[in-house]
Simulated scan of single mutants.
Amino acid sequence: MTADMSDKAALRSQLLAARARLTSHDVESAGELLARGARELAELADASTVAAYVSVGREPGTRALLDALRARGTRVLLPVLLPDNDLDWAAYEGAERLAKAGRGLLEPTGPRLGPEAVCAADAVLLPGLAVDGRGMRLGRGGGSYDRVLARLARAGADPALVVLLYADEVVARVPEEPHDHPVHAVVTPDGVRRFERL
C-alpha cells in the first residue's frame, strides 16, 4: 500500500467515525440545507440531465434534492451497482420506484440505460467523504466513481462535477493518486464553493 493509499484509508476512517456520531436530526437538517443550496447552483439549475445518487445512512442527504430536480422537469439518472463495482444507470421516477439493493443501497427499478448513459449528463453529483481546496475529492474507496470519471473523460464529456458534504468535510488536503479527478464545486450546509477547472 502506498503512502497516499494509507493516508486515504486513515482519513476515511476519521471521517466515517465523525459521520457515525451524527444524529438523525443532524442528517435531516443538513439534507434540507444541502437541497436548498444545490437547487440554487447554476450548474444544476441549467441542467436538463443530472446524474445523482440516493443517499443512505449518514451520508449528506440527497432525497429532497432528487425530488426537487424531478419536479422542475430535470431528468435525473441514478446509479445501479454492477457485480464488478461499475455503475449502470436508470431514470429516477420517484421514491416509490426505488428498491433496496446490495450494500444497503437504494436503486431505481426502471429500465437500465447502460454505463455510458452518464455521458449525457450536464452535471454529475458525486458521493464523497471530503474535498480539499483544490477540489480533490475523497470517495469511499470502491472505485465505482473513478470508473465513471474515466468514462466521462474517454467520451470527451465535460459535465459539472459536484459533491455534497458536511461543512467539516472540506479539509486542508486530500491525498491524491494519478487517477483522481477534481470536482468543480462542493455544496455544504454552509454554502457553495467552486474550484477552478483545470
Score class of each variant (00 low, 15 high):
Leu77Ser: 08
Gly102Met: 05
Ala38Glu: 04
Ala52Val: 03
Thr109Glu: 11
Pro175Glu: 13
Pro79Met: 01
Leu69Tyr: 04
Gly191Asn: 03
Ala121Tyr: 08
Arg140His: 15
Ala42Thr: 10
Leu66Pro: 14
Ala121Met: 00
Leu149Gly: 12
Arg36Asp: 06
Leu125Pro: 04
Ala71Glu: 10
Ala47Lys: 07
Arg12Trp: 06
Arg75Ala: 02
Thr109Asn: 00
Arg147Ile: 03
Leu129Arg: 04
Ala51Val: 11
Arg21Tyr: 11
Thr62Cys: 00
Leu78Val: 11
Pro127Ile: 09
Gly142Trp: 02
Val27Asp: 00
Gly135His: 07
Arg194Trp: 05
Lys8Gln: 12
Leu149Ser: 14
Ala99Gln: 10
Val50Asn: 11
Pro178Trp: 04
Leu44Lys: 02
Ala38Thr: 03
Asp4Phe: 12
Ala35Pro: 13
Met1Lys: 06
Leu33Val: 10
Ala35Ser: 15
Thr49Val: 15
Arg63His: 15
Ala64Ser: 08
Leu15Val: 01
Val76Pro: 06
Asp122Lys: 10
Asp4Ile: 03
Asn85Ala: 14
Arg36Leu: 14
Ala120Thr: 15
Gly142Met: 06
Ala120Leu: 04
Arg137Glu: 00
Ala18Phe: 05
Arg197Thr: 06
Gly142Val: 01
Asp86Phe: 03
Ala42Gln: 09
Phe195Ile: 13
Ser13Cys: 12
Val148His: 01
Met136Pro: 05
Ala155Glu: 15
Pro178Thr: 06
Val76Ala: 02
Thr62Tyr: 00
Glu176Tyr: 06
Leu77Met: 09
Arg21Thr: 13
Val131Trp: 08
Ala38Cys: 05
Ser24Glu: 15
Asp88Ile: 01
Arg39Pro: 00
Val171Tyr: 01
Leu152Met: 04
Asp180Val: 03
Ala17Tyr: 00
Ala18Thr: 11
Arg70Gly: 01
Glu40Pro: 03
Val56Phe: 05
Leu98Glu: 00
Glu43Leu: 14
Asp146Lys: 10
Glu59Tyr: 05
Gly139Tyr: 06
Pro189Lys: 11
Arg137Leu: 08
Arg72Asp: 12
Gly128Thr: 08
Val124Ile: 10
Asp158Arg: 15
Gly133Asn: 02
Arg194Ile: 07
Gly102Ser: 09
Val76Gln: 07
Asp7Cys: 10
Tyr53Arg: 07
Thr49Phe: 08
His184Glu: 11
Pro83Val: 04
Arg75Cys: 13
Ala157Met: 09
Gly114Ala: 12
Arg112Ile: 02
Pro108Gly: 00
Glu176Ala: 15
Leu34Asp: 02
Ala91Ser: 12
Tyr166Asp: 03
Thr2Pro: 09
Asp86Cys: 12
Gly61Ala: 00
Ala68Trp: 08
